[in-house]
Design a binder for these strands. Structure first.
Lengths: 225, 225
DNA sequence: CGAATAGTGTCTATAAGACAGTATATC
DNA sequence: GATATACTGTCTTATAGACACTATTCG
C-alpha cells in the first residue's frame, strides 16, 4: 500500500516526451531528433527531457520546448503516460507525453536558435501502412512511433469538437488557410460553404485582405476573444 | 538533455491513483478510503499504489483494483498524470490516475473481501458548490479532489460519444436502467424514445423480461458483440 | 379498473452535406 | 477576357429534440 511500505518501491526516472506539431507545405509535420548515443543511435526520436525533482511536468515541458525550438508561450496539452517496463532498455523511465502545436511561421523563425539537429518529419507519410516500402524514414527509437500514432489520432479527434486547429495558424489567417488545416488534420476534403457556417461563430473578421496573388483576395480573420 | 546527463536528475516515486466508479441508488459513487496516517490523517483519499520497478502502469492499476475491491477484469482507462511538486508534502510523487467502472452488483458482492475500510461517496453531492455548507464530507487529502473533478468531467464528456456507460450496468440490463445511467452521468433527463433510437444499434435483445413489479415488464438487453 | 412504468409513432427543429452560382484579384 | 481562387445562396439529407399515444403488469 502506498502509505505504509513505500520504501520497498524503487524510485524511477520520469521524462517528458514532446510532440511539436506544425503544418509545413500543406503537410502535418512533427519535430524529431536523430539520436547520437546508444541505445537506438542514429534512429529517430521525439525530443524529451527528464523531469527535475523540483519541477512540475508542465515546467519540464516548457523547458523542453524552449530547448528544442527556442519558443516560449506556445500551446501544449498532456497526451498520455507510457509506462512499459522495457520501453528504455537502460533503465525504467516513465514517459509523460505532451503535444505542442505551433504555426510554422513561428517555428521557422527560430530555426537554428538551438544547438541540436532537430528536423521535421511528415507524420501521415510516415504512419502510412507502406511507409517502409516507400523508403520513408521509419526507424523510431523506443516506443516513440506508438506515441506519435496516439498523438495523431488525438489530433484527428479533437479537431472536430475543439479549436486546436487554431494553434496551427498565425494570429491572423484566411479562411481557406484555416480550412486547409482542418482538412489536413481530418484527412478529408471539406465544403467551404459548410466550413464557414461552422467556424463562423468562433472568428471575427479584420479589415485586412491578402494581396498579390492572381486571384480574388481573401479576408483575414482572427480568433474570437 | 535526456540522453547525456540523466545522472543529475533525481528519480522519484510513481503512484497510480484509482477512481473506482459505480452507480448505487441512482447516484454516481466513487470508492475512497479514510487515511490513517499522516499526512492528511483522517481525511478522505483515493486508493492508490506505488508502481513497482518491474511493473507497468496497467499492472499496478490491476493490482490496486484487486487489493481495494477484490475484483479482477473490470474496465479501466488512464485519465491524466498529476505532477505538482508539493502534491505530497513528504516527497515527490508523480500520480498517474486511472478510472475504473464497475456495476454495483459486482462491487457489492465483493464488499468485505478486502482488509481496508473503503467506502463509497456520492460524487455529485460532494462536488456541488455548496457541499461544505451542507455538511457533506469534503475533506480530501492531497490533490484528490482535483483528480475527482477531472474524472467527473471526463465521464460526462465520454458518455456522449463512447460506450463507457455500459460498464456501469450488468451484462444484461433493461433500457430504462441504462437510460438512467446516461442521465446520471450527463446530469439531465433524456427522452426515452430518442434514447432508444440512439442506443438501438449497439445492443441486442435477449428473450428475458423483468417481472414482479407492479407495472409493465421490461426487456433485458445485452451489448452487441 | 387504477397506478405505474415500458415501449412506439411521428412531427418539428437544427445541423451536416452537397452543389451551383457569383465575386474579384492578376496577367 | 482568361484563369484562379474567394465567397454566398439554397436545396437535400441526417440527426436531435419534443410530445403524445399505446401496452402490460400488479394489486
Amino acid at each position: 500500500m502506498k502509505d505504509y511500505d513505500s520504501s520497498i518501491y524503487e524510485k524511477m526516472s520520469v521524462a517528458v516526451d514532446l510532440l511539436v506539431f506544425t503544418i509545413e507545405n500543406n503537410r502535418l509535420k512533427c519535430l524529431v531528433v536523430e539520436r547520437e548515443e546508444e541505445p537506438f543511435a542514429g534512429m529517430v526520436a521525439l525530443p524529451g527531457v527528464f523531469v527535475g525533482i523540483d519541477e512540475t511536468l508542465e515546467e519540464a515541458t516548457i523547458r523542453g520546448i524552449k530547448e528544442e525550438t527556442g519558443l516560449e508561450g506556445i500551446y501544449f496539452e498532456q497526451l498520455y503516460t507510457f509506462g512499459a517496463v522495457k520501453r528504455d532498455p537502460r533503465m525504467r523511465i516513465i514517459s509523460v507525453s505532451y503535444m505542442a502545436l505551433v504555426p510554422f511561421e513561428k517555428l521557422k523563425f527560430k530555426a537554428g536558435a538551438r544547438s541540436t539537429d532537430a528536423f521535421l518529419i511528415d507524420v501521415d507519410e510516415l504512419l502510412a501502412e507502406d511507409s517502409d516500402k516507400k523508403g520513408i524514414r521509419n526507424d523510431f527509437a523506443f516506443d516513440h512511433k506508438d506515441i506519435l500514432t496516439y498523438a495523431r489520432q488525438r489530433l484527428k479527434n479533437k479537431v472536430i469538437y475543439s479549436k486546436v486547429a487554431f494553434h496551427l495558424v498565425p494570429k491572423e489567417f484566411t479562411l481557406p488557410e484555416l480550412q486547409k488545416v482542418y482538412e489536413i488534420l481530418l484527412g478529408r476534403r471539406l465544403y467551404k460553404a459548410n466550413f464557414r457556417k461552422k467556424i463562423g461563430p468562433y472568428i471575427e473578421e479584420t479589415d485586412k485582405m491578402t494581396s498579390g496573388e492572381a486571384h480574388r483576395p481573401s479576408r483575414l480573420y482572427r480568433i474570437q476573444d
